[in-house]
Design a binder for these strands. Sequence first.
DNA 1: CTGTATTTGTTCGTATGTATT
DNA 2: AAATACATACGAACAAATACA
Lengths: 82, 82
Amino acid sequence: MKLEIDPHGREPSYLQLAALLRAAIQAGEIAPRDPVPSITYLVGETGLAIGTVRKAIGVLVDEGLVYTVPGRGTFVAGTRPD
Amino acid sequence: MKLEIDPHGREPSYLQLAALLRAAIQAGEIAPRDPVPSITYLVGETGLAIGTVRKAIGVLVDEGLVYTVPGRGTFVAGTRPD
DNA sequence: CTGTATTTGTTCGTATGTATT
DNA sequence: AAATACATACGAACAAATACA
């Protein structure tokens, strides 16, 4: 997964990252119930601060596209609730 | 408006603050289109950090109960969209 | 059962940018 | 120009839940 963020882009970094992850999920690159890259991993890949990555994940959680399980990770939501 | 947060309570501080503000709004203590106390004011009143206060406001924004206008403030939403 | 590692959750603090008054 | 207020982004610490050796 390519994760290129332009810190000087028109869109805020956290929205750019959210969009990239959203696109990957909707393209089927991550299957339902499969884990999204961890926050720590995303920090390393993107060069963003941990708070910024958290905010991006939060956007997708709010959209219902992913869900998080403390201590385990963040996962792609299924089409129907579990 | 009384804004007592228990930092050691069962609920996170930002949810406690969100609940207090929500209650005040629903009790009619702040009328639609009237401003909610500013983030800076709430920081001073509650003793919480600015990020925590912002998170509480964010909860109410997500609920559609209030809306924010940069440079002006945060306001109670009307029953119908403007 | 213990200890360690991983991951998310909460909270704090600071700086800079943008918008309004 | 200055003050006020929200937005974004950075960094750090600790807690809680989970997994595993």
